[in-house]
Amino acid sequence: MNLVRDSGTAFAREFVPEVRAPVVLLFNAMTPLLFIGLFGPLLVSSGMGTASSWQWFLPGILVLLALSGTAGSGATLVGEAKSGAFERMLVTPMNRQAILIGRTLKEVVTLVAQGVLLIALLLPTDFTVHPVGALAGLLLLAFFGLGVGVLSFTLALVSKRNENVFYGVQQTLFFPLLLLSGVLLPMDQAPGWLYTVSRFNPVSYVVEAERSLFAGRVLEWTTLWGVLVCAGLAAIGLTVGTRTIRNTTA
């Protein structure tokens, strides 16, 4: 069956409930909102970062959104594999990849919408929006979300109806990836060994690229590394995910 058409149907199935209850969108953005509200002020008063702390902090928070939200989205698929809803889709002639892609695209749209929401919340502060940089930043975020999302759904397929496996892996990865990415504090102030370790964390490059984009510096090497990491992540995710769902037998 048609990949594009079926992805659209799968996307719509996931997206429509979200539109019907937009409050959910806000709930899903709870972690980053808490960071903005409860950690941000500390950052501002301690005078970290450059001219505006928000300018420095927001890009990291956007990446955190993907790590805390998008990365967990596979849990919905584990739930549907347990309930029978996933099985019912597998008996239809729909394209197998579309199941994965439709769901991931919904997560990407959610992620970007949350990003826009956070930017809007920061508008009353001294946060400056550089239009080109901000747009490029959101686009990069979308690509990052695509890779993270498709990997999350792949993990869900591999977890075989077992939430403990899913959450076990996801949580085990979450904190190292977060702490070694420089989302919360600048990594270049870290001790040498920690900085070195952080260089092996792909998320670091995404955070740095986002920071440079939101500072209005678009054409820089930092951006390129971030783009490469996101493209690589999406490519790996789509390849592994496609192979997994083709062999999935519910």
Binding site: R13, S83, G84, M94
Partner: peptide
């Protein structure tokens, strides 16, 4: 199947429609 085919958070109407689209 033996399980529940409809998604927990989905409206009955939406799921019936989506199933037709999947076909």
């Amino acid at each position: 199947g033996q399980g529940t085919s409809g998604g927990h958070n989905h409206l009955v109407r939406d799921e019936l429609y989506t199933q037709g689209r999947f076909h």
